[in-house]
Nucleic acid binder design. Structure first.
Length: 243
DNA sequence: AAAACAATCAACCGCTCAATC
DNA sequence: CGATTGAGCGGTTGATTGTTT
């Protein structure tokens, strides 16, 4: 899972950190602090034989050894918060990490690339595909619409699975989660100004509208306008409650 | 059982920015 | 005001582990 240990031409060790190295670094930083990462290996090396560059020491400390770091699975709340913050802040992982106590920027970045990006992409791409053909919607968002012709393959998702899950949710009156709606809507056409509070009203979306979105194949949206559907609820929805 | 593929995540690299000289 | 230095950030890599075929 980690790079194999090796020693470079200057005698600086690279790759995986051993338990012994961790202990040396932890002991040194806890005793002396880390006012200067660059100089730290000089002293830590002298006193305890740690042969790592300052950059490597800093990274190890920040992402692994630092007290209070949380390891392990992310809760739903944490994931929702990351999606929301990423939507607001973009790839500013350190800024996002600052809002999630105990999580490192590297950890959050990995979590995003491994799980959350796909989730956000699935929601945003499918929703956008469907909405962009609405006459009212296109009128107001026209300048952005061409950017969102994302194929299923590009989105990297199983569209059928997602559609089925959503339709079931509508059919059985299961509550649609705020985070999913937040992701789908705020990612639509750069609508990054949507506030979280606005999303609550989106949970009141007409069931037949959601059903229509999910049960119509994406291809139809590429070629057919929104004629099949009465657009009044949609117009009302986009214009009214939270804009 | 084994090979192929996918997911995970620690670590590295190169860059930017701010502080200092 | 430009050069230098160090910290920090974000993108990327690659070994390991897990899963599927």
């Amino acid at each position: 899972m980690v790079r194999t240990p090796c020693v470079d031409k200057h005698g600086i060790k690279r790759g995986e950190w051993s338990k012994e190295e961790d202990n040396k670094l932890r002991a040194f930083v806890e005793k002396n602090g880390h006012p200067n990462w660059r100089q730290l290996p000089k002293y830590a090396g002298y006193f305890s034989g740690l042969l790592r560059c300052g950059k490597s020491c800093r990274l190890r400390w920040m992402n692994y050894l630092r007290p209070g770091l949380k390891k392990g699975n992310y809760s739903n709340e944490e994931e929702e918060l990351i999606i929301k913050l990423h939507n607001e802040l973009g790839n500013r992982w350190s800024a996002i990490a600052a809002k999630l106590p105990g999580r490192s920027d590297n950890d959050i970045k990995n979590q995003w690339h491994a799980h959350l990006k796909k989730r956000a992409n699935i929601i945003s791409s499918t929703s956008t595909e469907q909405f962009t053909e609405s006459s009212q919607f296109v009128k107001s968002q026209n300048e952005h619409s061409s950017n969102y012709k994302v194929s299923e393959q590009e989105a990297g998702c199983d569209m059928k699975e997602l559609q089925s899950a959503s339709v079931n949710a509508v059919d059985t009156s299961v509550e649609v989660s705020s985070s999913d709606l937040y992701s789908s809507c705020s990612l639509l056409n750069g609508m990054d100004w949507i506030e979280e509070d606005h999303i609550r009203s989106m949970e009141k979306l007409p069931a037949d509208f959601l059903n229509f979105c999910w049960t119509n194949p994406i291809d139809n949206f590429q070629t057919e306008p929104f004629d099949n559907f009465q657009t009044e609820p949609l117009d009302h929805f986009w214009r009214q409650p939270f804009f």
